[in-house]
Nucleic acid binder design. Structure first.
Lengths: 234, 234
DNA sequence: CCGGATTAATTGTGATCACGTTTTGGCGGC
DNA sequence: GCCGCCAAAACGTGATCACAATTAATCCGG
C-alpha cells in the first residue's frame, strides 16, 4: 500500500551534524515520491494517514503537507482536504512554458563549470542514463520516472543556484504525478529517443548554448508525449 | 512594533463561503508584509512571537512560517531558527535572471485578453501608478514598495496563470525585503523614471511583444538600482 | 433491489504541554 | 574593561486532545 521509499540510511554524513527533523524526513520522502510519480493525481492524503504510514505523529505530517502544498504539489480542496494536485489542459501548457523558460538556462550554467567538474558530472549522468535505458527496455515505467528525475536533477543541482533550483523543483512536483500516469498509458516504448546523450555531450564539450538547446528539446519532446497521452477525462 | 497590516475586512464576500482558516490569514498578512518589504532581511521571527503579534496560538504561526519558508521568503538557520531571507551577490543575480525569464512572458499574456478587460486593467493600473508617483514625490519608500508590488501583481494576476503566478510570487517574496533596504538607502528620487507608463500603453494597445519588453526594462532598471545600492556588508 | 436519511468514522484545525537545545543576560575573575 | 562561565529565558519540535465539519457506511422503507 505504501510505495513511499524509505530513506537511504547508507549515506552517513553523521559526525557533528544534527539529526534531521522528523518533518523534514517526511517531507523529503513524500517529495521524492511525488516527483518520481509514485502518487497519482487526485490521490487523497490525510494527516493521520501519512503519520501512520511513516510511523510518526500528526505534527510532522502536517508540516510536510503544508510545505508541499506551498510548492504546488498538493491541492487543498474547498473543504480543506488534501490531495495530489490534478492536471488540466491550461496548467499543462503553463508548466511546459515555465519549464522551457527555466530549465535550459539553469542547465547552461552547468556547462560553465571547470573541465574536471564537468567530466565528473558527465560520468554520473551517464550512469543514471544507462539505468534509465534499461528501465525503458524492461518496460518499467516506475523506474523510468525515477531515473529520469534523477538525471535532470543531477544536472540541475550541479550549478549551485538555489533560487532556480527551487523554482524548477516546484515545476517537477507539479508535473511528476501526471507524467507517470501518461507513461503508464503510453508505455515506455515511446520514450527511447530522449536527448540525454546530447545533453551529456554538450556538457562534456562545455558548450552552454548546445546544452541549452539539448535540454529544451528534451523537455519539448517529453511534454509533447504528455500532450499525446493526455485525454480530457479527469 | 508590529507594522503587519491588518486584513481588509471591508471586502465581505461572505455569504456561503467558509471563514478563512486562521493560519491562512496569518500567512497572507505576513506574505504581504514581506513582499512589500516591511520586514528587513535577517529579521528574526519566532513561532511564539508571531502568534502573540497576531493574537493567535502557536499552530497557525507555525504553519504560516513553514509555508513561507517553502517559498523561499524565510530562512531556517542551521539551529532551526527562523529569519527573513538574506540577500547575497549570487542570489541577487539569480533572482534577476529568473524574474526576466518569467515576468515578461507572464505579463504578455495579459495583453491577449479582450479589449474591455485590458481597458479595465489599464485603468486599475493607472490608479495604482498615480499613488505610486505620489509616494515617490513624498519620498515615502514604504508606500513606494507597497504600490510597486500592487502594480506588478495586478498585472500578473490578470491572466489566470496560477503556475506562473506562484513562481513569480516566490521571486518577489525573496526580493521584497532586500528591495526595501536598498530604497531606504538610495531614496525614492532615483526611482521616478520607471517603465510603468509604457507598460500600461502596451497593455492598452494589446501588444504582447511591446508589453514584454516594457516589463523587461522595468525589471532591469529596478534590479540595476538594487545592484547600485548593494554593498556587501551584513 | 434501490434511494435517501441517519449514524458512525475520518478529517483538518487550533490549542496546549513537555522536552531538549539554543540564545541571552549577568556575574565573577582575570 | 573584557572574556568566559552559568543560570534563566526563549526557541523549535513533536505529541496529544477537543471540536466542528465532512465523508463514508449503515440501515430502513419502498
Amino acid at each position: 500500500m505504501t510505495a513511499l521509499a524509505a530513506p537511504d540510511k547508507t549515506s552517513q554524513d553523521n559526525g557533528l551534524t544534527r539529526p534531521a527533523a522528523v518533518h523534514e524526513e517526511v517531507y523529503q520522502r513524500l517529495r521524492r515520491a511525488i516527483i518520481s510519480g509514485q502518487l497519482e493525481p487526485g490521490r487523497a492524503l490525510s494527516v493521520r494517514g501519512l503519520a501512520a504510514e511513516f510511523g510518526v505523529s500528526a505534527m510532522p505530517a502536517r508540516e510536510a503537507i503544508r510545505q508541499l502544498a506551498a510548492q504546488g504539489a498538493l491541492e487543498i480542496t474547498p473543504t480543506r482536504r488534501v490531495a495530489v494536485a490534478r492536471m488540466s489542459q491550461e496548467k499543462l501548457e503553463e508548466l511546459c512554458d515555465a519549464r522551457l523558460a527555466l530549465e535550459p538556462s539553469l542547465a547552461a550554467r552547468a556547462a560553465k563549470a571547470s573541465a574536471e567538474a564537468r567530466e565528473a558530472l558527465a560520468e554520473a549522468l551517464t550512469t543514471i542514463d544507462e539505468a534509465l535505458d534499461q528501465a525503458i527496455k524492461r518496460g518499467d515505467s516506475a523506474d523510468y520516472a525515477k531515473y529520469n528525475s534523477e538525471f535532470h536533477f543531477a544536472l540541475y543541482e550541479a550549478p549551485e543556484a538555489p533560487v532556480y533550483l527551487g523554482l524548477v523543483e516546484s515545476l517537477w512536483l507539479q508535473t511528476g504525478p501526471f507524467m507517470r500516469v501518461v507513461i503508464g498509458r503510453l508505455g515506455t516504448s515511446s520514450l527511447d529517443d530522449d536527448k540525454h546523450k546530447e545533453i551529456v555531450a554538450a556538457l562534456r564539450a562545455g558548450d552552454p548554448e548546445k546544452l541549452e538547446t539539448a535540454v529544451r528539446e528534451d523537455i519539448m519532446q517529453g511534454m509533447s508525449n504528455i500532450v499525446r497521452g493526455y485525454s480530457p477525462e479527469e
